Computed example of a mutant assay.
Amino acid sequence: MQIAPGQPAQRTTSTAQAKELYLVDGASDVDLYDKPEYVAPAVERPDAFFDKHLAAA
């Protein structure tokens, strides 16, 4: 399955737990530590994901 950078790929496992893979276009793993243009979207996405999925728990 091909995933475009910046687009989430939601999956459901056999345990029915929501998962999301998010690629930050142009960022390496090291960029996600200290480059604001990459850190901001990398932090916002899981924050929204957790708000959505943990609020129901």
Rank of each mutant, 00 (worst) to 15 (best):
S14K: 15
A9G: 09
T13N: 12
V30N: 06
Y33N: 06
A57M: 04
A42D: 00
D47F: 12
Q2D: 10
T13E: 12
A16D: 15
T13I: 13
M1E: 08
P8I: 08
D47L: 11
E20W: 05
T13D: 13
V24F: 00
A9T: 15
E44P: 00
A57Q: 06
V30Q: 12
A4W: 11
D47G: 10
L54I: 10
M1F: 14
D29N: 05
P5H: 14
R45H: 07
G26P: 03
L21G: 04
P46C: 06
L32H: 00
L23I: 13
A40W: 04
H53S: 03
P36F: 03
A40I: 07
Q10D: 10
E20N: 06
Q10M: 12
S28T: 15
T13W: 14
D51I: 08
T15V: 15
D47C: 08
F49H: 03
K35A: 01
Y38T: 06
P8V: 10
Q7R: 15
A16M: 15
Y38I: 05
Q17D: 14
V39A: 01
F50N: 01
Y33F: 11
A18S: 15
A4K: 12
F49V: 03
D31V: 07
I3N: 07
Y22E: 02
E44W: 03
Y22F: 13
D31P: 04
Q2F: 13
A16R: 15
A4F: 09
D31N: 08
A42Q: 01
A57C: 04
D25N: 11
P8N: 12
A9E: 15
E37C: 02
V24L: 05
Y22A: 06
E37I: 08
A57L: 10
D51W: 11
Q10P: 01
K19M: 11
G6S: 12
A9S: 15
K19C: 10
F50M: 05
K52L: 06
D25C: 04
S14H: 14
A57I: 06
F49A: 00
L54W: 06
Y22P: 00
A48H: 09
Y22M: 10
H53E: 12
A48M: 01
A18C: 08
E44G: 05
G6K: 06
A4S: 14
Q17K: 08
R45S: 02
M1K: 14
P41N: 05
E37M: 13
F50P: 00
K52I: 05
D29C: 04
D25G: 07
H53I: 06
V43R: 08
A42F: 03
Y33I: 12
A9C: 13
M1I: 15
S28W: 08
I3C: 05
L32S: 02
A9V: 14
A16C: 09
D29F: 07
P8W: 02
A57V: 06
R45E: 03
L21E: 08
R11G: 09
D25V: 03
Q2C: 10
S14T: 08
T15D: 12
A9D: 11
S14P: 03
K35S: 05
A55N: 11
D47I: 10
R45K: 14
A27T: 08
Y33C: 04
D29W: 09
A42N: 01
